[in-house]
Amino acid sequence: MSHASASSASLEAWHARYIAESAARAGAAVIRDRVDKAHTVETKGTNDFVTEADKAAQDAIVQVLRRSFPNDTILAEEQDDAVGSIADVSGRRWIIDPIDGTTNFMHGIPPYAVSIALQQDDAIVAAVVFNVPHDRLYAAVKGGGATCNGEPLAVNNADTLPEAVIATGFPYQRVAHTEVFLDVLGALLPKARGIRRHGAASIDLVRVAEGAYGAYYETGLKPWDVAAGALIVREAGGRVTTVGGSGGLHPLFDAQTVATNGRLHETMQDALAPLQHIHA
């Protein structure tokens, strides 16, 4: 790629980030308008819910993106063909979760977030995560660093588990591997400074990026749960892979995510080895 085309691609990604920020704010406005109100709730599966707020927020987000990028494709949680999505695309695709943490939102428990990422061919090139209750907007461009409300982000420098707070998510939809998860959690509990579970993967990821957590792990996630947060972690100096160490788009589409400050990555991979065969 020539220097000119590289610069052009970078400018396109920065522009995409700017529009994504506007889209996230549009979605957040819809969500805030529905806080503390009765919701129409549909069940998509075991402990998997969608409210009218999810759908309305997604419509608002897509409307903003479509105005600027009418030819881009979209992969969003609340669309009919979202299940079974493939990793590889040719061209540009927006990956959207209108409310990451729907159960939290339904019960008035922060955090919950809008998550928007732009995939260009085989890479995520722009990302936004908007923590709606706390009004914190995280954003990144590939090769351009990551910010929160305009301030640069950096992962922490914890070298060992006793120095680190770790975040995770529980397998609340499928219970076939519960014992393995509990074994791994039980082994980590006495080693880490603390374990947290907030119920919104995008928030857990950006908290790795800003240095609050040293690591985060979970299986069974969807691309829209991980896409934006993964780029933000990487641009803040962290690392995101599967348990086995595959990077790129694998943590998004292989339903297995390990995010760390980089220093703790091999330690976390070793601790999570029993989960390596679990993708649900």
Rank of each mutant, 00 (worst) to 15 (best):
Gln119Pro: 08
Gly194Glu: 02
Trp224Cys: 04
Ala28Trp: 02
Phe130Leu: 03
Thr46Ile: 09
His3Asn: 15
Arg92Pro: 04
Thr103Leu: 13
Gly144Cys: 06
Gly150His: 03
Lys222Met: 15
Arg239Thr: 15
Trp14Val: 00
Asp254Trp: 09
Gly91Ala: 11
Ala4Gln: 09
Ala20Ile: 07
Ile99Ala: 08
Asp81Ser: 12
Ala29Thr: 11
Trp94Val: 00
Ala82Asp: 09
Glu52Thr: 12
Leu264Gln: 06
Asn261Ser: 09
Ile95Asn: 05
Glu151Tyr: 00
Glu266Val: 15
Gly244Tyr: 01
Val30His: 06
Arg239Val: 13
Leu161Gln: 05
Trp14Asn: 03
Ser10Ile: 01
Gly229Glu: 08
Asn156Trp: 04
Ala24Arg: 06
Arg197Phe: 10
Leu161Asp: 00
Gly211Asn: 01
Ala113Met: 12
Gln63Arg: 13
Pro223Met: 03
Lys55Ala: 13
Tyr213Asp: 06
Asp54Gly: 08
Glu218Asn: 07
His198Cys: 10
Leu11Gly: 05
His39Asn: 07
Glu42Pro: 02
Gly101Leu: 12
Asn71Ser: 12
Thr103Pro: 06
Arg234Tyr: 07
Asn261Met: 07
Ala56Asp: 15
Val125Glu: 00
Ala167Met: 08
Trp94Asn: 01
Asp80Tyr: 03
Leu275Gln: 01
Arg197Trp: 08
Lys44Leu: 15
Ile278Leu: 07
Ser22Trp: 11
Ser7Gln: 13
Gln79Tyr: 03
